[in-house]
């Protein structure tokens, strides 16, 4: 298991996080300011950082910018600031994920697992072969009709599988429900596009850590759905 740095000026949160992470089998080290975090990183071999944004001495964004100059390890920002602009800023500076306080421990642990898997085991995976598509931690192998998220296999119904395949074939392209219906059901939707929304919802519940804040299949309200890939995932 991994060695994780927890950095937050709120000691109670730090100890709660230690308890959760150590229960999962990780080892932890702690820092209470951005500067301490950089010191710890210099001293110890750390595989993942949980970083608060609002901290004394050096805030999370500054610390993140500083550590990104040296380290490649995954960083999850952990903050009370939940606005879109804060998220965009954090991700742009170099965070790999963004969790807002108060967080759900289960979700946080899932995100930690996901980041670790990507960093430790999948990070170096070679470019997938023919009939395989990969977007972030999402992998679709069409020969085996198998889908994995961060290495974990996911059970999809045939319709969900077809929709995901269509989306992965057209990454970053907005697909309207009508288009998806035509491609997947192979017939004209006559007032049946509503079905697509239901299937997409199920699909999201299966492949996303937090379906209300999806990483992969995102809603473009009033236009359709898009599978995000590349830098902005």
């Amino acid at each position: 298991m991994a060695h994780i740095l927890i950095c937050d000026d709120e000691r109670d949160i730090v100890s709660a996080l230690r308890i959760y992470l150590e229960a999962e089998g990780h080892t932890t080290c702690v820092a209470y300011t951005g500067r301490q975090a950089l010191d710890v990183l210099a001293r110890e071999k750390v595989q993942l950082v949980l970083l608060d944004v609002m901290m004394p001495e050096m805030d999370g964004i500054a610390a993140l910018a500083a550590l990104r100059q040296q380290y490649n390890l995954p960083v999850i920002l952990l903050t009370a600031k939940g606005e879109d602009t804060d998220k965009v800023l954090g991700l742009n500076v170099g965070a790999d994920d963004y969790v807002t306080k108060p967080f759900n421990p289960v979700e946080l642990l899932a995100r930690v697992r996901s980041q670790l898997r990507r960093y430790l085991s999948l990070g170096a995976e070679p470019v997938p072969q023919e009939d395989c598509w990969q977007v972030g931690g999402l992998l679709l192998d069409d020969r085996q009709k198998r889908v994995t998220v961060d290495g974990e296999p996911v059970n999809l119904t045939p319709t969900e599988y077809e929709i995901l395949k269509l989306c992965m074939n057209n990454p970053n392209k907005v697909l309207s429900p009508r288009e998806i219906y035509r491609q997947v059901w192979q017939e004209d939707p006559i007032g049946a596009e509503g079905l697509v929304a239901v299937h997409i919802r199920h699909l999201r519940e299966k492949i996303e850590i937090n379906p209300a804040d999806p990483r992969y299949i995102q809603m473009v309200w009033g236009r359709g759905y898009v599978l995000r890939s590349g830098e902005d995932v």
Partner: peptide, 23 residues
């Protein structure tokens, strides 16, 4: 709040919303 008004197909949006809420 930032508001980004663009042409939005309400039929599609409502289908999406209803799909989200059907269950």
């Amino acid at each position: 709040l930032s508001v980004d008004c663009a042409p939005c197909r309400l039929n599609v949006l409502l289908e999406q919303v209803v799909g989200e809420y059907s269950e």
